[in-house]
Design a protein around this nucleic acid. Sequence first.
DNA 1: TCGAGTCGGATCGTATACGACTGCCTGCCC
DNA 2: GGGCAGGCAGTCGTATACGATCCGACTCGA
Lengths: 252, 252
Amino acid sequence: MTAARTAPAPDDAAPAASKSQRAYDWLAARIARREYAPGYRLVLGTIGAELGMSVVPVREAVRRLEAEGLVTFERNVGARVAMIDDSQYRQSMETLAVLEGAATALAARRLAVAELRRAREVNRRLVASLEDFDPHTFTALNQEFHAVLFAPCPNPRLLELVTAEWSRLGRLRDSTFAFVPGRAQESVREHEEIVALIETGAPLAEIESAARRHRSATLTAYLAHEHPDDAPHHPDDAAPAAPVRPSPGGTR
Amino acid sequence: MTAARTAPAPDDAAPAASKSQRAYDWLAARIARREYAPGYRLVLGTIGAELGMSVVPVREAVRRLEAEGLVTFERNVGARVAMIDDSQYRQSMETLAVLEGAATALAARRLAVAELRRAREVNRRLVASLEDFDPHTFTALNQEFHAVLFAPCPNPRLLELVTAEWSRLGRLRDSTFAFVPGRAQESVREHEEIVALIETGAPLAEIESAARRHRSATLTAYLAHEHPDDAPHHPDDAAPAAPVRPSPGGTR
DNA sequence: TCGAGTCGGATCGTATACGACTGCCTGCCC
DNA sequence: GGGCAGGCAGTCGTATACGATCCGACTCGA
């Protein structure tokens, strides 16, 4: 729902896209490229001047970015690029694990052999890209692999959320695999397992679980690498532990 | 992420909220109340005149509504209330089943006894509301019950999506229980089961599955009641079926 | 009678203008 | 020296104005 249109045609000759759209794309690109770092102050007038347009389209673009969580906005004060901390990345990954797992399971029974073949082919390209490793292309291929798998998911709403979360992640961090290169190898192996599960008609619960664990594992690897002190804690952490914690304080 | 602020204070004396915000609230309310039916043409100037403001705030409100999927917008043509079909409702319910299940599981280990007591109390009120049944209040209490359960979920992003989906559902349909009154009784029973699972420290997977099935069952009941011909088909439909379908046509 | 071209109204897209609010800096008073 | 009040610059919020675009209807000719 959120990231709907993202410039159908950039602009060839005529200004096919509206100025608001151009402003949106321009800002989103700058933020993604970290040219506008988190906390950076976005002044409507300045941006408008830089883009050769009035403040009105810029304003609209900023409000859209705000709705997507890329920038924060304070009334009568102004907009600034949202502060992104590590926990946001973790949360998005965790959420994506849930969404993607469900989407993959829902799509599993609708995958034709041609699509499975295509998924394998993408995975082969992933393997090939392991030598001469480039995190960015690896992430792109990785996304393509998963996209093939959950594309036939009959629930467009779920797909929408998955896509939104993917792009959100992309803006939070260019590629996880840049941080934990070792994870890439393991990842492609898990890909093959997931494809095999789908192919053999494994129970949907099992497929969902595998897909979810696959992503959670990437997150865990990242956390272990960057923050060795953090607890792993992902959706599949099913340690029974104590039945209930005692009430720490008030009702809430 | 989408439905962030929804009017902190309506407006007592001073226009605390901006006009854009007022326009947004006003439009959202009208759409929810079906006063603006799906397909209804939203003309900026007219609405602005009716609200005693210029088109600019109205425009912004409409764009926000567009971002949330409530209205569609066509350039140089105008906005109209989004056409909502039954499948959207189904998809939202299905998605919410996934999200809520995950959130509940993630929150389970963090629920203190006080919160469980509170959940049970809300459920008691649900039981009480069964006689002299009002679908609207039942839905509100139902939401409160679940909110208590997943509130301690440590993943704010996931909670955000759950909340967004709840409000989306609320706008698609006031209350499911208005359509399938019989489902309400069953629902409160399942509530107790979920609380018991959490209390006894059942595996997280089991809690998640129960929470998900709980919502899926509501959807199934609705579908069976309204569209007896539709297949049930929900996330837990784990019928093994054939391993893979043959490729129906091209690669895609 | 039917089609194509043209005209007009309706609506949006953007620019410009002005008022309102916020935060900071300066200067005064204690 | 510290604290508070006032002023000032920077921004946003909204109104108004005008050009651009689209859609429907009307007219004119074959």
